[in-house]
């Protein structure tokens, strides 16, 4: 494919080992700008932008400081696994993957939602680095259980050589299968499995509270046998610390871990945060695009 769209936004973050908190914050900003750019240039001028922005800080910490992956060897057998279970937020996943080097950055702005393009609105297995096809909600945690269980079976004599991370949406936690996965992870004692909930409090039509209340959310996960941390999902040092705790085997041997991250849908775009119901998915015209970029410092 010939790349006609050339992004003009500056690249302010590149991958390196041992990134500082400030550098991860820069990465999160880069991911947010890339999501807006990707949405504006997509074949449909749209993406599920609200949830992509709410999860940008989580994604920055994951791809910048947590995931042990090799973009040049995407099937490396002991890589950490990441599953975007809230599959409609593929845009921010693609931005993070491009940043980490899984594919050329220009693809973000030329192949999303385009017929024959590389980047489907809901990721598929054609893209190296994608671990699971998601989009129909609720399946990712069960996928993660399968991978985490395989890690244990295939490496019987050593501690799990990799970890499995699954990012869920709160809307997705109204799916029955999510709770099947929650029970399964506990039953199989998958302490190499880390779930993260991007708890932005909005499902499509209204707030999660109005549609299908999840509270007391922390208690529910605890009662199902998980080790729970509830954190500010936009605070990079806090998120980073939460992953460190979750990754420590001694934190809770034999128990799966969840980080419930309180976030805001559309963060930090003002008109999206004020009107989150209409920014689950959205179209960006020239004016809105310019306003988004202005609010993102450009």
């Amino acid at each position: 494919m010939e790349y006609k769209n050339k992004s003009t936004i500056p690249v302010i973050s590149t991958y390196k080992e041992h990134m500082t908190d400030e550098e991860l914050e820069q990465l999160a900003l880069q991911l947010r700008r890339d999501v807006i750019e990707l949405t504006y240039y997509s074949g449909t001028k749209s993406s599920h932008v609200g949830g992509e922005l709410s999860s940008a800080d989580i994604m920055a910490v994951l791809y910048g400081a947590v995931l042990r992956v090799k973009p040049e060897d995407p099937d490396w057998d002991v890589r950490d696994r990441f599953i975007m279970s809230k599959g409609h937020c593929s845009g921010v996943n693609y931005a993070a993957m491009a940043w980490r080097g899984f594919f050329q950055r220009d693809k973000l702005f030329n192949e999303f939602n385009r017929v024959g393009g590389y980047l489907q609105e809901h990721a598929n297995m054609e893209l190296p680095g994608i671990e699971a096809p998601t989009g129909s909600l609720g399946m990712g945690l069960s996928n993660g259980c399968g991978m985490a269980y395989a890690a244990r079976l295939e490496h019987r004599h050593i501690l799990s050589p990799y970890r499995v991370y699954v990012l869920l949406g709160d809307g997705e936690c109204t799916e029955g299968q999510t709770w099947e996965g929650i029970m399964l992870a506990k039953q199989l004692r998958l302490d190499n499995l880390v779930a993260i909930v991007d708890y932005n409090k909005y499902i499509i039509s209204a707030s999660t509270y109005e549609v299908m209340d999840l509270e007391p959310f922390t208690k529910k996960w605890e009662d199902f046998g998980w080790y729970v941390q509830r954190v500010d999902g936009h605070d990079i040092p806090t998120l980073r610390k939460a992953f460190e705790v979750a990754n420590d085997i001694d934190t809770a041997p034999g128990r799966p871990r969840v980080i419930i991250a309180d976030t805001n849908k559309g963060m930090p775009i003002s008109f999206m945060m004020k009107d989150a119901i209409n920014w689950h998915a959205g179209h960006l015209d020239d004016k809105l695009y310019a306003q988004c970029m202005k609010e993102l410092g450009l």
Partner: peptide
């Protein structure tokens, strides 16, 4: 839990089983 079972099987196959 058949839904979870099928998704689990996919995950396990993706991880080499």
């Amino acid at each position: 839990a058949e839904q979870s079972g099928v998704s689990f099987a996919f995950g396990a196959s993706r991880a080499g089983l």
